[in-house]
Design a protein around this nucleic acid. Structure first.
Length: 495
RNA sequence: UGUCGGGUCGUCUAAUGGCAGGACAACGCCCUUUGGAGGCGUCUGUAGAGGUUCGAAUCCUCUCCCGACAGCCA
């Protein structure tokens, strides 16, 4: 069981715009917090009371030092700090001043409430940390009712305690703050949750820090937080990732305190293994090459049966129309086939998935450019998929769509956002992969996709897993490539 | 040269004093009407040096390397 709490301790940060999308993301991932949605601002009054208690115990004081002065008094990593001249005010004076801070008598930044701990502590967090600052700013939940706001370090542990949290897990950078949280809880003598830290996720070929992600968004190097190249939940969702695949990924990488860099290939594999079992198959041609089957009767159309998912017979079958003119993938034809190339080439045969074996008898080229623009083929009527003669072996099987039945689609091919594994250092933005997205506008997909809606996911046979984009409209299909299939051929060809 | 934390195959992660295992990646083979999926196999690891022990990745000592921390951010 978990709570969802927003630690909205700083009204000057634009938290409002994130509150809704964070909830949406967490819910989409599959978590349910029932009615336990909380805000640290729910506890402002209680926190104020806790602060008074610490003052009364002589464990907190009002300090008149400026931000700069506090920094100077803090000392350094290797040298102890100096005590504030206001450190030994009386309880009465502190109580009075703190109450007047709340009632708005002092200007922003002029005073703070600080915990009275140890200015010589080797842990900087214990050198009299600030608990309250004066800040006149409208809060998204409490409006203008407060002009002093608790710091995160002061609010966090007590908020957990109020909620009766048993285990509070957070990332490693808060490890060094734990002694402070412990100190507050012990001083207050209230329920003491156990905080456990773990390493944050790092992925290869991307950046994860909020600061860098924000920069990418603000400088329009990506199209918003949900750009399919972003490693955000909303980006992954739009890219085509499923909640299941992300949870599988989380299971596989485990939880530890090791600061690690996880190969994005592992994430991709999780998506493949989820979608392999669940995604409907379809045929789509990204770079169409027109093929005319010369001996196929003009005007004739056959509805061929295709299985929706060979991994799951329960997903059934569908009909795919076949006719004299089809499109195949441009790359599935080579005029001069390399060794081990099992697809179409002049004089050679290939199987059309769910249809016939065809043979290439002629190649039509553009007179000027010499580019192959059309193929003339013949088919063997005896080799129809599923028929008695269909067992004839050919090395390759390729996908296709019938030209007169095909639907036009825009396909967006996404690749890694960065071209280096670990884009850190000052020049990280120069490592952005210039080919992280390629937009194809003249793709042809089989007619069954006419009804596809945003977020529908498919495997386009031999190509990869694709997800209908939010930009998609009824007569203007837009799909994103989430991840390619494993491609053994590309490795053979490279070698 | 302060405090805290961390070092196990290329990458993650198991093994809590008793056979260093799994996944991803890579490579090879089989199978295949997706060069998909699947199957089989190969490769590679306890940061270093001492010590305790019948036995150490695990316990002890020293060394080395990496990270976090000097916001009135979270």
């Amino acid at each position: 069981m978990c709570n969802l709490r927003f630690d909205d301790t700083n009204p000057s940060k634009e938290e409002v715009e994130y509150v809704e999308s964070i909830q949406q993301d967490v819910r989409w991932l599959g978590f349910d917090w029932d009615d336990r949605l909380f805000y640290a601002s729910d506890y402002f009054e209680k926190l104020y009371g806790f602060a008074i208690r610490l003052i009364q115990k002589g464990k907190a004081y009002v300090c008149d030092l400026s931000a700069d002065e506090i920094r100077q008094y803090r000392g350094t990593l290797t040298e102890p700090g100096k005590e504030s001249p206001y450190r030994n005010r009386t309880v009465e004076e502190n109580l009075d001043l703190f109450q007047r801070m709340r009632s708005g008598e002092f200007p922003d930044g002029s005073r703070t409430l600080r915990a009275k701990i140890d200015m010589a502590s080797p842990n900087l967090n214990l050198r009299d940390p600030v608990m309250y600052r004066i800040l006149r700013s409208t809060h998204h939940r409490t409006g203008d009712s407060w002009c002093i706001y608790p710091t995160y370090d002061w609010a966090h542990g007590q908020s957990d305690s109020i909620e009766g949290i048993t285990h509070s897990i957070c990332t490693l950078e808060f490890e060094i703050h734990r002694p402070l949280y412990d100190w507050f809880l012990n001083a207050l003598e209230i329920h003491h949750p156990r905080q456990i830290e773990f390493a944050r996720l790092n992925l290869t070929y991307t950046v994860m820090s909020k600061r860098k992600l924000l920069e990418l968004v603000e400088e329009q190097r990506v199209n918003g937080w949900d750009d399919p190249r972003m490693p955000t939940i909303s980006g992954l969702r739009r890219r085509g990732y499923t909640p299941e695949s992300i949870r599988l990924f989380a299971d596989r990488i485990g939880v530890s305190k090791n600061e690690s860099m996880i190969d994005v290939a592992l994430l991709e594999d999780c998506l493949r293994s989820d979608l392999n079992k669940r995604a409907a198959r379809a045929m789509a041609v990204l770079h169409p090459l027109r093929v005319i089957i010369e001996n196929y009767p003009d005007g004739s159309v056959e509805d061929l049966e295709a299985v929706n998912n060979p991994e799951d017979p329960a997903m059934g079958v569908r009909k795919v129309p076949f006719s004299k003119v089809i499109y195949i993938e441009h790359d599935d034809f080579r005029e001069n086939p390399p060794k081990k190339y099992f697809r179409l080439s002049p004089g050679m045969e290939v199987r059309l998935r769910y249809a016939y074996i065809i043979k290439c008898v002629d190649v039509v080229k553009d007179e000027k450019s010499g580019e192959v623009v059309e193929l003339r083929c013949t088919y063997d009527p005896e080799t129809k998929s599923g028929s008695s003669q269909s067992g004839r072996k050919v090395k390759g099987t390729i996908h296709w769509v019938s030209a007169m039945h095909a639907i036009d689609a825009e396909v967006r091919l996404y690749d890694r956002l960065f071209s280096v594994e670990d884009p850190n250092g000052d020049d990280w933005k120069e490592c952005i992969n210039p080919h992280s997205v390629e937009i194809l506008r003249k793709c042809k997909v089989e007619p069954s996709l006419a009804a596809a809606k945003p977020q529908d996911r498919f495997q386009f046979e031999r190509l990869g897993y694709f997800c209908v984009d939010n930009d998609s409209k009824t007569n203007a299909l837009v799909v994103n490539r989430a991840v390619t299939l494993r491609d053994t051929w590309s490795k053979i060809e490279k070698a």
